[in-house]
């Protein structure tokens, strides 16, 4: 089925990109954000359609935090369990700069083939 092929491709692409996007979102803001808020920001910026399944950002947030690219603190909430707010660390910013450069190179490289056809 075409649909499942597209899904699989999207999932494979997302593998490393979720981490990059999360670091970028947290880098752009001075506030600490919690999982749901980050998910909604991603959704809003894409006209209400989320490219990532939002359930996949939570484990990635946790893994970035375990790698000390993010710090977190817990704040009680009225609507459900206490929320964990994340903030990017200095190390996180350094890694983001590195990833950003890798992403640009990769994107330019891929674009060279699929946007204008194979270069001569």
């Amino acid at each position: 089925m075409d649909d499942s092929n597209a899904k699989k491709f999207q999932k494979e692409l997302n593998g490393g990109l979720v981490g990059l996007v999360l670091l970028a979102v947290l880098d752009q803001t001075d506030e600490d954000l919690y999982g749901y808020e980050i998910a909604k920001r991603l959704q809003r910026s894409n006209d209400g359609q989320s490219v990532f399944k939002e359930g996949t950002i939570y484990p990635v947030l946790r893994s970035l935090s375990a790698l000390e690219l993010l710090t977190s603190r817990i704040v009680p909430s009225y609507s459900g369990p206490p929320r964990r707010y994340y903030k990017i660390t200095e190390q996180g910013r350094a890694v983001l700069a590195e990833w950003r450069a890798i992403w640009r190179d990769t994107r330019d490289f891929v674009d060279r083939f699929i946007e204008t056809g194979a270069p001569s």
Binding site: Y58, S77, P81
Partner: peptide, 8 residues
């Protein structure tokens, strides 16, 4: 995590 998201 799921409960935090769903309740929110």
């Amino acid at each position: 995590d799921a409960e935090e998201y769903l309740r929110a």
